[in-house]
Design a protein around this nucleic acid. Sequence first.
DNA 1: CGCTCGTTTGAAGCTTATCAAAGTCAGTGG
DNA 2: CCACTGACTTTGATAAGCTTCAAACGAGCG
Lengths: 243, 243
Amino acid sequence: MPKQDIDSLIATLSVRDRLPRDEEAVLRALDWRTRTVPAQSEIITDRSSPDESCLLLDGLAARAMSLRNGDRQITTLHVLGDFVDLHSMFLSVMDHSVVALTQCRVAFIGHNRLREISTEHPHLGRLLSMMVATDAAIQRNWILSLGRRRAESRLANLFCELYRRLEVVGAVDGASFPLPINQSTLADVLGLSIVHTNRTVQHLRATNLISWQGGTIAIHDWDGLVELAEFDPVYLNLDLAER
Amino acid sequence: MPKQDIDSLIATLSVRDRLPRDEEAVLRALDWRTRTVPAQSEIITDRSSPDESCLLLDGLAARAMSLRNGDRQITTLHVLGDFVDLHSMFLSVMDHSVVALTQCRVAFIGHNRLREISTEHPHLGRLLSMMVATDAAIQRNWILSLGRRRAESRLANLFCELYRRLEVVGAVDGASFPLPINQSTLADVLGLSIVHTNRTVQHLRATNLISWQGGTIAIHDWDGLVELAEFDPVYLNLDLAER
DNA sequence: CGCTCGTTTGAAGCTTATCAAAGTCAGTGG
DNA sequence: CCACTGACTTTGATAAGCTTCAAACGAGCG
């Protein structure tokens, strides 16, 4: 695996806790098994019992769950630097699937190996648990969104969150960030119909908060977006972030 | 602390993983600081930075988040045996508050002590992480509910989940379990208005799936409730449960 | 007995879903 | 070079689900 591949994980961790040199070295020295998966493919199957966990090196992935009628809900979006299913190390059977929304590069590492390094380096083990907990905090914010925010605020919130998370791993470009998904997928994140998702996006455009073309979101009015979203990044746990 | 107080934690853990005698002994020997808190009081304040975690020994508690307009969303219900904010061990600032929905007995234990025993007993540390991960799985199911299930199915799902979780800690009585909250609180769980919550409850009664009086839910038709809810308990991670 | 809190009912309105069709655009083959 | 195709976005019209407001009802309590 190319050396810089692990950089986004290092960035994700070190913005949230101190990451000593030796622990960083341990992570870099791990025997990651990398793979490239095509867009729309399943990285991890629902109801399976993986014996390894998967780090996202590049691309956009999602946890997805479905109802019998085919309705799909995406419960978390994953960006580079995210451990996509550390959860499977602690839960024996997957309660959801993980799908690649774009082409993704991923790196696998065995649960046994992760358990070994957690025992040898307890602080590193705690960092892994912190990622699980951060994940859960992101999910809680999404529960608040789905339960109590209306469509527009919900979408604004998503854009704010993605901007901040992508910023951490150096994947934003000024006030723009990549979002190479279609509105049908976005609807599955928002818990809305495609039609209403489209109308909601159009309204954010019309009020000049954002634009969205060619798979890129440009934020034109960050303060306005934050206001509409009632966005407070505490839940992202970015304590050591510079701002 | 009376000896049996910790039993519900032991039950919660041992239904999900093997819990060796010595680890159980470690948990029982911990220097828990117990407290009784009145209904409606805050156990942990939003935006605070606790240095201890809180185990629920008795009663019903909830993670709560609010919007500026006062709308409240409950993101997780906690029952006896649940670690209410293990998350705070890994996240420095609380992204939500924890409130007692009924009078609660709780037991606090310092984060430092938890870190010590996690280092000395790595498997026990992993059990703690498993509780965080189980919590996250419960939240994911709730995201699916809020995003894609309509009110009736959402409520049915909640009742199925609570029944199974309370069963683990021996808090059900036949086909009944305690739910000593009012419909306003239930509305905050479901992400609905009080009025619609009331109508949804009445519909479950009218179709003879459940009854609800005096703070007790009686399930009259488990299979019907499961069917309506599309309830699949995989996400509760009850691997070692007998059924 | 009158209060208060919680539940229930009714009516109107808003947000979002559903259905159907048209518009746009990039890619493809004739 | 142009018509065709298929995926995606956009628009319009109607309906369903849920919220809001207002008021009545009921049980427990000082």
